Amino acid sequence: MAEDPSEFQRRAIALHAAYHAGDLKSIRKLLDDPPGFPNSQQPYELGCAGTPLEYAFCWSPASLIRELLEIGADVNYSVVDGFPALFTLLETDREDKYDLLTLMLDHGADIHQRGINDWTPLHYAVAQRDLKAAEILIAHGADPHLKTRIDAYTSALEDAERYGLDDLAAILRNRTNA
C-alpha cells in the first residue's frame, strides 16, 4: 500500500528540520535507519537525494557533519552530477566552509578527485577565484600542475595565469617551488 502523501510531506518537512537542527538520531529515524547509513542514498521523494553528508553540507551545522564523519560517512562518495564532496562544499556560502574543507581533507577526502569539467578541487577553487580554498588545498598537497583530461587540458596553475588571477597563480607557483 502506498504511503499517504500528507504523511510523506510531513516526513520530508521533519527530515529537513532535523538536518537544520543537526539531530542525527531523528534523521536516522525519519529515514527508517537504512542499511549502510550514513553512506546510503536518501529517498528522492523526501526531497533529500544523495547521501546524508552531501545533504548536510547545504543545510546542517558543522557538528552534524563532524558526527557523520565520525560514524564513517564516506568523504569520497560517488556522484553523477559532477559535484563530489569537496566541490559541493566549495559551492556553499557557509561561513565555516574552510574549517569544514580542512576537516574533510583530514578525513581522507581525495584532493585530486575529479568533478565537473574533469576539474580537481583546486581547478574548482581557481574557477571560483577562492584564494583561501586554494591555500588550504595546496597546504594539503594539491598538485597545481595536474591537467584536465578533456576540453582545454589545463592545470589549475595554467587556468589562474590565463585568467589573470595573479594572487592565485602566485600561491600555486609557490607550491611548485617549495
Rank of each mutant, 00 (worst) to 15 (best):
K25G: 03
C48G: 03
H140Q: 09
D166S: 15
A133F: 11
D32H: 10
C48L: 06
R175C: 06
A2G: 00
L146K: 13
E91Y: 10
G72T: 06
G47C: 06
F83V: 05
F37W: 09
A139R: 15
N174V: 01
K97T: 13
E135L: 09
G36C: 02
P144C: 02
D33T: 08
Q41S: 11
A134Q: 03
D167Q: 15
L137H: 00
A169G: 03
L103W: 07
L64P: 07
A152C: 13
A134G: 02
H140C: 03
R10W: 10
R28L: 06
Y19P: 05
F83D: 04
Q9S: 13
D143K: 00
G36Y: 04
T51H: 07
Y163T: 01
G115H: 03
G22C: 14
P35Y: 06
G141L: 03
Y153C: 12
P61N: 03
A2R: 03
N174K: 14
T51R: 07
A152H: 11
D33R: 11
L131P: 00
Q42E: 14
E67V: 04
L31P: 13
N177S: 13
A49D: 15
E95T: 12
L100T: 10
H16A: 03
G164R: 08
V126P: 01
N174P: 00
P5S: 08
L146S: 09
I111N: 01
E161Y: 08
R162T: 10
P43K: 01
A125W: 06
R114S: 15
D130V: 13
P144I: 08
D159M: 07
